[in-house]
Design a protein around this nucleic acid. Sequence first.
RNA 1: GAGCUCGUAGCUCAGUCGGUAGAGCACGUGACUUUUAAUCAUGGGGUCAUGGGUUCGAAUCCCAUCGAGCUCACCA
Length: 569
Amino acid sequence: MSDLSAYRDSAQTSAAWPFEEARKIVARIARTGKKQVLFETGYGPSGLPHIGTFGEVARTTMVRRAFETLTSGEIPTRLIAFSDDMDGLRKVPDNVPNKALLAGALGMPLTKVPDPFGTHPSFGEHNNARLRAFLDQFGFGYEFMSSTECYRSGMFDATLLKMLERYEAIQAVMLPSLREERASTYSPFLPIHPVTGHVMQVAVDEVKVDAGTIVWRDPDTGKAYETPVTGGHAKLQWKPDWAMRWVALGIDYEMAGKDLIDSVKLSGEIVRALDAEPPEGFNYELFLDENGQKISKSKGNGLTIDEWLTYASPESLSLYMFQRPREAKKLYFDVIPRAVDEYLSFLDAFERQDEKNRLGNPVWHIHGGMPPAPEKIAAAGSNQAATAVSFGLLLNLVAVANVEDKGVLWGFLQRYAPGASPQTHPRLDRLVGYAIRYFADFVKPKKVYRAPDDVERDALAALKAKLLTMPADASAELIQEAVYDVARAVPRYQDFKAKGATPERPGVSNAWFNALYQVLLGEERGPRFGSFAAIYGIANTVKLLQNALDGVLIRDHEAFLAAKAPAGG
RNA sequence: GAGCUCGUAGCUCAGUCGGUAGAGCACGUGACUUUUAAUCAUGGGGUCAUGGGUUCGAAUCCCAUCGAGCUCACCA
């Protein structure tokens, strides 16, 4: 943290949004005199963690780090990941096994619903574990809290009793926001049915402030019950629950999606009805799919976090989350490569920037003020500055060179920068892996292999024969010479207008190379062929030529596409 | 009906108390021993959506208009 204190002054005026948020919290504690700051992110545990979950925690953490920088770490902070696991199960999710098991538990608190996966005592606990594993995988610092445990332990009791006392004031906040038919039966308290265990959404007949209970009737049996609002015998409706939690835990900051703006407002009013101050907040925009539609779990559109992490690093996803949180951004496959390269260039720029600019650099926020040094490679025998290899470059390379193996791609890289290796450049190595997966899933399907005609067949056969006479470690230059020499003998490829061409020794036209790329790689363009063959290996190249002559390349590609078709789509 | 965001180069966007418009990519040209991924140099390109206001001075602050898009108004 001592490193960060250097940024304290510049941070006071930084325009980066995490600092603007953090300054709101600084003003808040100046007002309240609090000695620590609590951040909260909340989850409805009926679903699995998703890309929005990541976004909310990542962004909250950015504000947290900004706050710590503003205050030189003098004020302790905590981030609470709160799981609303006492919520009643409303419907059976589509993506779970043993649906019948869940169907029998509709209406029960999630921590009373059996675990369809059979790994935890309840569905709620199962999902809590998934949430924690998810957050841990990214190294987020947080404290987990279970709503069920909070209610049962009595941690919420004092605030719950106060809400009972202010019952009318809370209703005065809530009722105008509801339609008539709903308002007539609305109660902020949801008693847990003492017999069935269901979370009951029923009208409250009587509020007994002194006894700390509510009186209600079972709509099916008509039987009346008196239930304490404390000790986990009842829970709260969502918006009052949020408000109660803010008060009981003393939350200072919580962000929410734009769809919750009105809810934040109502919950805030309830907090004020409890004589407390609602937390500072921030409303981030929702993500859209490539057609501009809101991403929702039920629709399954947009991009999942697993998909992102298949093709790019968590850091690139953090960058995406950092940038323009108040704008509706499209979140689909095409944004990934750009996010990766922007991350790399921001990382590259960081070293050259002064304090103030660093605070505006996304990598400062992604890495909590301490971004790693960029990994660069230096060209052999060159006094040019080392540069970072971009994802775009790797994608290009992997596509034209038909690379499916990390080693081969490293071969190309080392050709340019002999000193580099997966050991010296581990992050570049991961980038290489991402590029290859991208190739397999998005580039390879678009390849179009074409069959050679008779002239091309002869030329390819001649090239193969020539390569067979060469040593396995023949240099790229030597192979390149051979490629030219083979084509020089073929009238179709002779080019007498080429630079340095003579009638006895014609140049070679582009048609030859185009044919090689189209037939062998399924691409319109490609790498320098000599270099390609040297890295790919003479034996492999010979096999590639033979496969082209045998029609194997086309057959294999068709089989590949056929196998992919049903799963893809 | 209520609220939010955005409009700057062909594209994606920076532009941090107001002080002569920037980057990356793309494109043009040139260099690198027979052009074919990776390099380098260089060039063109913007009435900062529109109209007004404040100011010595506005992409930046204020108001209005137009345009693009989103969210909420049942539940969480």
